[in-house]
């Protein structure tokens, strides 16, 4: 049995009595084996700590939902008061509301979802260890930081301009609006199957950064193009921000 298999069985607690003995002998007599096992034991401890921390966060998120609900119930009695105040506010700020009656944050989160991979189907196999394949694996797993690095490299290698589109999408998903905007603009300089789709995402990035005129311009460009992707959404979004 290889040392690798022995180690795998050790961590999955499946060593037979004989294998346990073999493992222990190796551990006591082979310094490099011992070093590797000790390292992996530390990885085990660390991944457990990290896993616990993630789970704790998950539980805390439930609690924040409960506290929101709690707030809702205790503030029930002031609802009529708020309604009255809101009416007064609406009357006084009618003109302002006419021009600024939408919430960029909300619109962005309603309309934005990172583009699907329509360029290169993922192949999970040892035979396909290319940067491009790995980039799309990271992208599909929402590991956008890693995806950005890999898309950059894959673009350098292949100069396939569609990759700029996915890199920009990753930046947008991470909330790096400034760099997402410049990456989409860079993509728009190229002409490929996804070029017109960049107008949609660029419009969302502009909207999020309160550059309304530019957002409208991008939406209009998309609507007037031959691209059918997100056309209906673009029309409805444009109505909302006009």
């Amino acid at each position: 049995m290889t040392n690798e298999t022995l180690i795998e069985k050790y961590f999955s607690k499946r060593l037979t009595t004989d294998e346990s003995l073999e493992f222990q002998t190796l551990y006591d007599t082979n310094p490099s084996f011992k070093q590797e096992v000790d390292f992996l034991k530390a990885v085990k401890t660390v991944s457990e700590t990290e896993d616990d921390a993630q789970f704790k966060k998950q539980l805390e998120s439930y609690e924040s939902e409960y506290s929101k609900q709690h707030k809702k119930t205790i503030t029930k009695w002031i609802k009529p008061l708020i309604t009255a105040a809101a009416i007064v506010l609406i009357v006084f700020s009618f003109n302002y509301l006419m021009t600024e009656s939408f919430d960029e944050e909300k619109l962005f989160s309603t309309y934005f979802e990172p583009s699907k991979n329509v360029t290169s189907p993922i192949v999970r196999s040892t035979d396909n260890e290319t940067t491009l394949n790995n980039a799309f694996i990271s992208y599909s797993e929402a590991d956008y930081k890693q995806a950005i690095l890999l898309f950059k490299k894959a673009y350098q290698d292949s100069e396939n301009s569609e990759l700029l589109f996915y890199e920009a999408n990753s930046l947008l998903a991470l909330g790096d609006y400034k760099n997402a905007i410049s990456k989409f603009e860079e993509h728009l300089k190229h002409s490929d199957l996804l070029t017109n789709r960049s107008h949609w995402y660029l419009a969302l990035a502009y909207l999020k950064t309160k550059q309304h005129d530019k957002a409208k311009q991008e939406l209009t460009l998309l609507i007037n193009s031959s691209e059918t992707f997100k056309k209906d959404d673009a029309i409805s979004l444009l109505k909302k921000i006009e």
Partner: peptide, 29 residues
């Protein structure tokens, strides 16, 4: 030392973190 290792572990991509967690903490084959 483990704190330091945790620091580097967190720099790995999500899929690697998941892979190592499943292999060593969860003990999956």
């Amino acid at each position: 030392e483990q704190e330091l290792l945790r620091h580097y572990f967190k720099q790995l991509g999500k899929s690697c973190q998941q892979m190592l967690t499943l292999s060593f903490y969860r003990g999956l084959t």
